[in-house]
């Protein structure tokens, strides 16, 4: 069944912009990205929108829908009433390029700063062996599609631009956790997590976990375990003493 929906879409660029009202047809089973595309095809031919897979796997069509960071391709129109106005805006945390497209290069800069995977030497037969139970914790974080919704919603940088230098954001804190938990990796990233990537800035309010379209438990399984590992290293006198007298190897 088709109905006419009210949409408000932010249009503009770095010099300014505003929310513009549209009335656009919506068909049964459609998602917000379908409607944005119809808008582009019928009323606003120069509307800028970034998208790719339309299947929630590429992480391109991140936006804020009724104020909540979401993938446009994974937000069904059936979640709204026919009389509701749907507001679509670009990610607030990043500089806008045009309309719904933002410059997310902050994230790529942070990614490049993370100490890379550094495996222990290969075994005598030239292989790297590890057990599934050892690596499956890290595998949860490999589901990340880098849509940057967690980075967008994190108030540490969303509300405080000045923190971007000191804080890497939840996506990269779970990257650090992933590498630190990896059974083959030998680099200790705990000091770097605290000093260079701003782990202490996170106050675990869990918005990153709430918005993750992959359902990754960023806070419970990534950031908090990383915080606890940093406590082992920096704040717990017992574990510190244990490591000094050789009673507490890393594993």
């Amino acid at each position: 069944m088709t109905y006419a929906a009210s949409f408000r879409v932010w249009r503009g660029d770095v010099t300014g912009g505003d929310l513009q009202d549209f009335t656009v047809d919506v068909n049964e089973g459609e998602v917000v990205l379908d409607v944005i595309h119809r808008l582009q095809a019928t009323q606003a031919g120069d509307l800028a929108v970034r998208w790719n897979c339309k299947a929630g796997k590429c992480g391109s069509c991140s936006a804020e829908i009724n104020g909540r960071p979401r993938l446009m391709c994974m937000t069904r129109m059936s979640t709204f009433g026919e009389g509701d106005t749907v507001t679509v805006t670009p990610l607030r945390t990043f500089p806008v390029i045009r309309d719904l497209v933002t410059d997310v290069s902050y994230n790529y800069d942070k990614a490049a700063q993370i100490p890379a995977f550094n495996p222990r030497p290969r075994e005598a037969d030239g292989s790297h062996r590890m057990q599934q139970v050892d690596v499956e914790r890290s595998q949860e974080f490999r589901k990340c599609i880098e849509c940057f919704l967690c980075q967008d919603t994190c108030h540490v940088i969303r509300d405080h631009e000045g923190n971007k230098g000191a804080f890497a954001g939840p996506r990269y804190l779970i990257r650090l956790a992933e590498l630190d938990m990896h059974p083959l990796d030998v680099t200790d990233r705990r000091d770097a997590a605290q000093d260079d990537f701003g782990l202490g800035y996170c106050n675990i309010t869990k918005c990153c976990s709430e918005v993750c379209p992959e359902g990754i438990h960023l806070t419970d399984n990534g950031i908090i375990p990383l915080k606890e590992r940093v406590v082992d290293r920096r704040f717990d006198p017992l574990t510190w003493l244990g490591s000094k007298i050789g009673r507490r190897p890393k594993d």
């Binding site: 932010w10 503009g12 660029d13 770095v14 912009g17 805006t89 670009p90 607030r92 945390t93 990043f94 500089p95 806008v96 390029i97 045009r98 933002t102 410059d103 997310v104 290069s105 902050y106 790529y108 800069d109 942070k110 405080h160 631009e161 000045g162 923190n163 971007k164 230098g165 000191a166 800035y201």
Partner: peptide, 23 residues
């Protein structure tokens, strides 16, 4: 449009400066 590569890190440690180039 914003110049390429300028969306990245702005220095500072939580000093609450303006948010450049955001929507």
């Amino acid at each position: 449009t914003a110049p390429r590569g300028t969306g990245a890190v702005t220095p500072g440690r939580g000093d609450g400066g303006p948010a450049p180039r955001r929507a």
